[in-house]
Write a protein that binds this DNA or RNA. Structure first.
Length: 151
DNA sequence: GCCAACGTTGGC
DNA sequence: GCCAACGTTGGC
């Protein structure tokens, strides 16, 4: 069982959008970074839990909990010329990008980035390290429990 | 909108 | 394989 943090820009896809999806489940498409892809493809397991994080917005914050609910599979948007995630260099016989489905579990209180920074217990969080840009980050069990108790 | 900190691309 | 140029992320 692993824990994760997954970023999404709420203007593009928010926790409320996920709640509106059929079965409150949606493919986490559009990942175009190899480190993030590798974590989804190689390390995520069905039943893993993740914090849903709103990024690039007025109040960057953890806003909910989601569950990984599929095996990794090829991201269909990479082959769709109409998609903003279209990757002309990805070949159908050798797809570059994989994704997993995620399911809404619960909303948390809004746990702002500025608030997370206050806790010595969270000093080591990847999210809080300088220069961090990865849209998928691992969370330790200790960090998970600590943050859950804030929400 | 700015810009630091990355990641990627491609010429050599 | 190096590295300059370029593109992107994301907080502020």
């Amino acid at each position: 069982m692993n824990y994760w943090l997954m970023k999404s820009e709420p203007d593009t896809f928010s926790i409320e959008d996920l709640i509106q999806c059929p079965n409150q489940t949606e493919p986490w498409d559009g990942i175009r970074n190899y480190q993030a892809r590798n974590m989804m493809r190689d390390q995520m397991k069905i039943g893993d839990l993740a914090f849903f994080y709103h990024s690039s917005c007025k109040v960057p914050a953890i806003v909910g909990v989601i569950e990984i609910c599929s095996e990794p599979y090829d991201d269909p948007t990479q082959f769709d010329p109409e998609s903003k995630y279209y990757d002309p260099k990805s070949r159908p016989d050798n797809p570059r990008w994989q994704l997993v489905d995620v399911k809404f579990i619960s909303k948390t209180n809004t746990i702002a980035l500025s608030s997370l920074k206050k806790y010595p217990e969270l000093k080591q969080m990847r999210l809080l390290q300088k220069g961090n840009r990865l849209s998928i980050l691992p969370i330790s069990a200790e960090e998970w429990t600590f943050i859950n108790n804030l929400g």
